[in-house]
């Protein structure tokens, strides 16, 4: 199988390995900024960078609902930071694929450029998508979905933005040992940020 497109997972993780805080609160990973790094925009900047390099945003149902509930109107919000407005424009414009057995096309409003795939078809359809030519397939959030895709050899790169905070409780980003090995591609840090971006290539298993 020759894949043309890369599937890239880009997530934030707290220093103690959490994907989100108690009560599924993702902001627990970022609250530190206002005290320690008040001008930190590195996570937004990196998300925009990944979106610019992608032509498909692949999401699980929970993340799709979360993003759709927040991003569409930010592009026209004069109070939003320019970087947030750009992310909103990119999120609105990009083709989206959401894996869900229950979501209906009416419920994708206002994100009409969304394709719904059922779970039973997900692996085959995502593999098919990867065989096409084009820019990256990008995943934000969507922990349950990418854990499954990682275990099924469909993820090419894992980009983790490690935030400088110990949150003590929440949802761990990893459930179990994945049957894949990781090789560090590179790391990135910023002057005004305590984040460390760690980018890993997922070594494909021999078939």
């Amino acid at each position: 199988m020759n894949y043309m497109k890369k599937l890239i997972v880009s997530n934030a993780m707290s220093l103690d390995g959490y994907y989100e805080g108690p009560g599924k609160d993702v902001m627990a990973l970022f609250d530190y900024r206002w005290e320690t790094y008040p001008t930190d925009e590195s996570f937004d900047a990196y998300n925009a960078e990944r979106l610019r390099a992608a032509d498909t945003l692949l999401l699980g149902r929970t993340s799709f609902d979360g993003f759709k509930g927040y991003w569409p109107s930010v592009a026209d919000d004069p109070a939003a930071r320019p970087l947030e407005r750009e992310i909103s424009r990119l999120n609105n414009a990009i083709d989206k694929v959401v894996i869900s057995d229950r979501l209906t096309s009416e419920e994708t409003e206002p994100w009409h450029n969304t394709r719904i795939l059922h779970r039973a078809d997900a692996h085959e359809q995502i593999a098919e998508l990867k065989r096409q030519s084009g820019k990256d397939i990008l995943m934000f959030g969507s922990r349950t979905l990418w854990s499954d895709l990682l275990a099924n050899d469909l993820v090419d790169e894992l980009h983790l933005m490690l935030t400088p905070v110990v949150i003590g409780a929440g949802t761990p980003i990893f459930d179990a040992r994945p049957p894949a090995s990781l090789r560090l591609i590179d790391t990135r840090t910023w002057d005004s940020s305590g984040n460390v971006l760690m980018r890993y290539a997922v070594n494909r298993r021999k078939k």
Binding site: L15, D16, G17, A28, Y32, E35, T36, P164, V165, V166, I167, G168, A169, F174, D175, A176, R177, P178, S181, L182, R183, L184, T189, S193, G194, N195, V196, Y200
Partner: peptide, 23 residues
Amino acid sequence: NPIVLGSGKRLFENEVAPSNLKL
């Protein structure tokens, strides 16, 4: 290290006080 084990004793156990760090 570039490895995930899924079990074992952790440095930051659950319920440690949240804290901010500087890199």
